[in-house]
Write a protein that binds this DNA or RNA. Structure first.
Lengths: 138, 138
DNA sequence: CGACAATTGAGAACCGTTGTCAAACTGCGG
DNA sequence: CCGCAGTTTGACAACGGTTCTCAATTGTCG
């Protein structure tokens, strides 16, 4: 699935600012936890806009590709998304209600880099998510 | 669907050792990386056994529940499984060729638990993967 | 303004996974 | 040794999320 390549072979990248893309962006601005594509689609509808589900998927994929949203998978394997605050961080997500806490751990960053370098790997990146049940859902 | 309670109070395991379960176990013994349920099903078929796909899923789920196999999800959200040799560990994966190195870091385990507990979360689990370009692909 | 590629949407197609339910099997008590 | 009751199985349908198709639209740029 690396085929979210939208720039044609001619190097002409033309991402147009359309009503639909604005609607997705607006919806993303309306919450700060992780939501599924369908939930985001519902949100857009509630906001009075009309955007096809396929377009929501396409737009989210493009935004994730551009690094403007974080996409990860919940324990059921479903993709969930949210707008990404620039800094690198991880998430502590409640399995039950989806509440999200951003956490950061310099030690982990250092550890992953050390491990990878130790094995000769370059261009290191990593993903780390923590799941649990939050106090309110217990 | 959280309750997969299978043993009665009398310590009498209600899980019967059947031909099918033995076949799944045998297949699991035949590889040491993560495979999808369907690949495992194919393996069983190649070994000459005949087990329904649904049964493979059920058996894998039961084994995972019993802590005898690890189940995680690949980037496409598909479940992949592997017999769980020993300790919990993570993977350092080459983006280009897919080569995988198993790594473990007690510090990370401790850190995730600490962070989660600190925020009042319970039933903690986490996912961590490191990506990079291996020496051979540089 | 006009041509043209990018974009969209409705629905079908896909595909992994789970549910259904009658038939087969297992262990146990009699 | 036999039959009962509960477990397990398998073929297949159902499901749900995601992607594909393709004709119709819509920005963009010359």
């Amino acid at each position: 699935m690396t085929s979210t390549d939208q720039s044609g072979p001619a190097g002409r990248s033309a991402v147009r600012p359309t009503r639909q893309r604005r609607a997705v962006a607006a919806a993303l601005a309306g919450f700060d936890d992780f939501r599924s594509a369908q939930e985001i689609h519902d949100l857009i509808t509630e906001q009075g806009d009309s955007v096809g589900l396929a377009t929501v998927y396409r737009t989210l994929a493009a935004l994730a590709d551009a690094g403007e949203v974080d996409m990860l998978r919940n324990e059921d394997g479903e993709a969930i998304w949210r707008s990404c605050s620039d800094a690198h961080h991880h998430h502590l997500v409640c399995r039950a209600c989806g509440a999200t806490v951003e956490v950061e751990g310099p030690a982990v960053e250092r550890w992953t880099n050390a491990i990878a370098t130790e094995h000769g790997f370059a261009d290191i990146s990593h993903t780390l998510e923590i799941f649990g049940t939050c106090p309110a859902c217990r």
